[in-house]
Design a protein around this nucleic acid. Structure first.
Lengths: 249, 249
DNA sequence: TGTACATCAGTGAACGCGCGTTCACTGATGTAC
DNA sequence: TGTACATCAGTGAACGCGCGTTCACTGATGTAC
């Protein structure tokens, strides 16, 4: 129950009544605050121990509650994890969307692409453990429920949107793909964005995976003693990815 | 002590004497066998629980030993992890090197590159949990000692070697890099491969990170319901990476 | 070749710790009439 | 507006489990003379 996305103030509560912040009773307000406090503390603990060792008891302890009290808010440890995962996807998606929304009106698709990549990287560096939660190795014994897919696809959809606008404005040079890949490319495009050419969709998905490869290597230490000016390195790599997708300007 | 790489039969033992398999006493042979059995069982358990929860007690239990007995072989849990990590890097490196060694004599650099990428992917799909151990998110609370770096760099060195041969044979088209990246590119090249142009080294490192991004996305489920013919997709992406590094043939 | 001694592998008990989850309960807050 | 009842948050004890590591010990294997 409590694992659904937190209801923003102003939406209707469980009774169906529209509930203004003032009208919500003390109980409802307390519930929201404590739910948020639990998630905040859990996020804090991700940093120390990682998701695999995230412990309800430790969270409760830190909050001055008894461990069983958490079960009023999350029916199990996995549900708390799910909530953290959805929040992380949403926060990352929002950061990326905000970066794109703040573009200058004259920005080219390639510039928008790079800006979104930079926003993703910046969020990852700012929230390394939440990033790890969603783009690191899977948490053993945990399988993400379907609730996560909507939030998980926000960054991907944003990138597709940028490429789509560019394509409509003739700002895309079709990448070439080998014949062996053609059927798969057509299937991918049909499934995800039938209005885009298969070559573009295929290149886009590869670029999407590669973007997270760059960020992961930086975050997980593989660039230690290799790359130093990581911002400059990343910016260039992101621009190259845009190029690979066919964004010509 | 026992966390150093396992001594292959035929090398000299701790006494300095050359020790043929026959000459080694029962004790030494048993020690090697049991060390290997511990690592094998630990690898098996990585699959179920992940590295964060790898447990000496569980390994001992499965081997029919008492947990304290493992301390004769590995001074601590972290040392066992280190041994597994080094083994994994070595196994991956060896798989990549073998794939390259098996090339046809006429193979172009681009073909060699793709063959190595495919070998890395194949090994990752065959050993997902060992791959996760080395290229997944870091194990919380564990920091890899310096012992791992040699094994960790085998794949990278192999890729550099391929590009180097191509460069010497004029098989590389210099990628372009923006002026902002020039100083960092020169630093990288000077540090790692002074005989290669900075543009090439920079592109190589980006491609290296992107390669593992592609593999990670496939392995960690991000391609679920997105990419289906993953081999075809990967082969093309790997060829594109070669192209990005400047391998023209 | 035989013997005394040193080395080593493995035992079993213990220390001190942590975990997720359930359950019957108390007391405060909210709701319906 | 006041009261009876329902809802809910939080408690504290308990269940049953697992963990890494230490330690004194036994008995087998190896080594030096």
């Amino acid at each position: 129950m409590s694992t659904s996305r937190s209801t923003p103030a102003g939406r209707s509560g469980p009774t169906g009544r529209p509930a203004s912040p003032a009208a919500r009773g003390a109980r409802a307000r307390a519930r929201e605050e404590i739910t948020a406090a639990i998630k905040d503390e859990a996020r804090r603990q991700l940093a120390d121990e990682g998701a695999a060792k995230l412990s309800l008891r430790a969270v409760a302890r830190e909050l001055g509650m008894v461990s069983s009290a958490l079960y009023r808010y999350f029916p199990s440890r996995d549900d708390l994890l799910t909530a953290l995962i959805i929040d992380a996807y949403d926060a990352l998606g929002e950061a990326a969307e905000r970066a794109d929304a703040a573009r200058e009106p004259t920005a080219t698709a390639a510039r928008r692409w790079v800006a979104v990549c930079r926003a993703v990287r910046a969020w990852a560096l700012d929230h390394p453990h939440e990033y790890t939660l969603i783009y690191g190795s899977p948490v053993p014994g945990y399988t993400a429920p379907m609730d996560t897919v909507e939030a998980a696809s926000r960054v991907g959809l944003l990138l597709i949107g940028i490429v789509r606008e560019a394509y409509e404005g003739k700002g895309v040079a079709l990448p070439r793909i080998p014949p062996a890949l053609r059927p798969e490319a057509e299937r991918i495009a049909a499934d995800i964005a039938p209005d885009l050419p298969p070559e573009v969709m295929t290149a886009l998905i590869a670029a999407w995976a590669q973007l997270f490869g760059l960020i992961g290597f930086e975050l997980f230490g593989q660039f230690n003693r290799v790359v130093e000016d990581r911002s400059a390195f990343f910016d260039h790599a992101a621009a190259q990815l845009a190029h690979g997708v066919g964004l010509v300007r």
